[in-house]
Amino acid sequence: MKRSKMMEFGVGLFMLAGILGLVFLGLRVSGLGSGVASDTFTLQADFANIGGLKPRSRVTMAGVQIGQVTAVELEKEWFDARVTMELDAELEGELSRDTTAAILTSGLLGEQYVGLTVGGDPETLKDGDTIHDTQQALVLEELIQQFVSNMVND
């Protein structure tokens, strides 16, 4: 009987380890809950072009991650891309109203993310506000096209 208890224990450990592994994959590898667990507030920003930005892309300030993109949709009035972000609740009421948002690329081929830079306005952004000063993503083809047409014009 003792041997069978050992066996049951082993199988139990095995299954427990499997479940813990899945939890590890969920939290640490896919980052589930990393943005959801803590308190957040929401900001929106309209961009003329977002390039390859996707939900769950990073939002940074001075290179430090402060939140993530939760949704990307087309805004029907100006046909801009409306990006919804969740930011660390500690920053609510700290960012000035003229904060700028830019879509940046990490490295030459890396992922795209949103970078925020504060301005000098004493008024601050609150939950649900929209950032107006935005800078669209750098699209390589457009850059090349501009460069070539400039050359031709010269």
């Binding site: 899945l22 994959l25 969920g26 640490r28 590898v29 896919s30 980052g31 589930l32 990393s34 769950r56 892309s57 990073r58 991650q65 890396g110 992922e111």
Partner: peptide
Amino acid sequence: YWSNMQGSVDFIEDI
């Protein structure tokens, strides 16, 4: 290493 992983791995889609 970790943040890039978390940014690209989707729980449903990949795991």
